[in-house]
Write a protein that binds this DNA or RNA. Sequence first.
DNA 1: GGCAATCCTCAAATCGGTTTAAAATCCGAG
DNA 2: CTCGGATTTTAAACCGATTTGAGGATTGCC
Lengths: 343, 343
Amino acid sequence: MNLREFSELLGLSPTTVSRALGGYPEVREETRKRVREAAALHGYRPNRRAAALATGRAMAIGHVIPSSLNHEMVNPVFADFIAGAGEIYARAGYDMLISVVSDGDEEGAYRKMAEAGSVDGTIVHGPRQEDKRIELLRETGIPFVVHGRTGEGDAEYSFVDVDNRRAFKKLTDHLLDLGHRRIALANGLLHLDFARRRQEGWAEALRKRGIDPDPALASSDEMTEQAGYLAMRNALALPNPPTAMIACSYIMGLGVQRALHEAGLTPGKEVSVALHDDMLSYLSNGATTPTFTASRSSVRAAGIRCAEILLQSIANPNGPIVQEVWQSELVLSTTTGPVVERP
Amino acid sequence: MNLREFSELLGLSPTTVSRALGGYPEVREETRKRVREAAALHGYRPNRRAAALATGRAMAIGHVIPSSLNHEMVNPVFADFIAGAGEIYARAGYDMLISVVSDGDEEGAYRKMAEAGSVDGTIVHGPRQEDKRIELLRETGIPFVVHGRTGEGDAEYSFVDVDNRRAFKKLTDHLLDLGHRRIALANGLLHLDFARRRQEGWAEALRKRGIDPDPALASSDEMTEQAGYLAMRNALALPNPPTAMIACSYIMGLGVQRALHEAGLTPGKEVSVALHDDMLSYLSNGATTPTFTASRSSVRAAGIRCAEILLQSIANPNGPIVQEVWQSELVLSTTTGPVVERP
DNA sequence: GGCAATCCTCAAATCGGTTTAAAATCCGAG
DNA sequence: CTCGGATTTTAAACCGATTTGAGGATTGCC
């Protein structure tokens, strides 16, 4: 059923019906009510495509999520980020358009979205150092918000990020305070900006105590359970193994834990384990007492906030740039403890 | 840049340009080449909204993913399912439209998509017993594929499902063969069809060996780590605790494992642990040797297959219904072992 | 009752493509 | 040189909404 048919059914003109449903004031309340009820009854709903064409607004937000080709893997944080953002979109009547592209084709996907006008704005996920996407999006003029950030302070775009450097400095400091001197890091891939920041936080904390960060203790890989496992196993095989390990995510931490169990070691005893926790909904870090010592920050909340900022800047394109750096909370558990000398 | 401007730039009519880009044969190859090159050069791309309106095809597939309001959680299998499906969509030039709705509003979201014509087809996730969405979608006439299924055999819609009953029967049989008699089950929420099937598989295996399934041993909750933890902890607190636990997902299994460690028990020794593994990309169940004894089936592969079937039935609405029930593979690990009498 | 001021409704233009039907061009044959 | 048929190109209608500017109906006031 299209607008004309529906309006004929009601004995009204298309204009009046459109206005009644659109909430414009040029229509009597009584008429509006009649139209609304008839629409619900007959299941009439304005065609989204036609409305988009007429108004110039697609009423959709684009997300490009990269799928690592080698590992056929999608970062699990997307699920929670999208859950948060999607809630805000839905409330504002926006759809969410998702493009899954293989790692590296992201630029093309953003360009496509922008040129074809299929979205009103986008979120940039997983910014790299010197990320071309940001320049590209700025050229197209399409509003966007970055989850994370890139480069140093001089950014001229809206973003929401965790203070990754500080978070990892805190984790490292905590371990240093417990007497650890050889502290390993199981990091994500270093071309991602947040991974670099985390590594810097780790290195900075060590240097402040006069310890030279040992490159052999800093590994970098996709953030999977298996990668965490391998990082810990390799670390244990070193001539001079670490007494503590910091993992970049809860998932990696699980792998670290597995490697320790396999070696007959207990987290928090022979080797301490700390991690950064994105607070994924299905992986609560213990309800009452936390399972892992962790710095934590909800990626779901970040999704909500990014969506809010984006919708705001779509509504008001000349509004201010919003840049938020969130501090993460440090929670302590039994997986970190005083250093124990091994025989 | 719109079509008219672009075609004027080339000194051609809009029709010719549209045909050249659309690959229609009424255009000389030389002209087509010229148009293609100019489009790439000037970044012209047909407006998606206008094209959708003109052709009547939205070139988008809708997914409605429920977010549990209580737990603010999105099932992590969506990420992998969507990664698989998205790949197929992208290859065929389709977008993926996602609606995150709170549990229970799903029907409305599907209706909205169908009535507003914003998608050409949808995937139904997490079918319930007696699922209204299926009848609704059939009424709208929009093609759809169900991930999972509902009711018994007489279904008249396309679906891809794992043989959940058989999978859980196999897991239970494996534990029975090892001598276990009190086998607990940490299930998902029972209004979900797959959870009921799993429970039936478990019960059936027990009855075949003359054991009456103990309701106290079958728990049911959201499929989170915490739920797995609680299920195991509660089970251990029973007057007559189980010697084995079957978890409904890898994530739940992690919680089970945590409860056991906390109680000073080792999976596969005092208590055996088996689970169903969706083979999420970031949670490989051990690369070389599996971490958990598990029945496994890739949810990513299911996403790919569902997408293929859906696109097929969009291209050919009168094509056959496709119903696939996949068998899962049983992999053995050290988390299951012979029953040990506890003092 | 007449007139102005509101309030509501309408016809028509518009968004940017696709596609049908008609016109223009090209080619070789007669 | 002309004609017929094949090949390209074009003008115009259409998809289904929104929205402008104009006209029609109501109401209030004198």
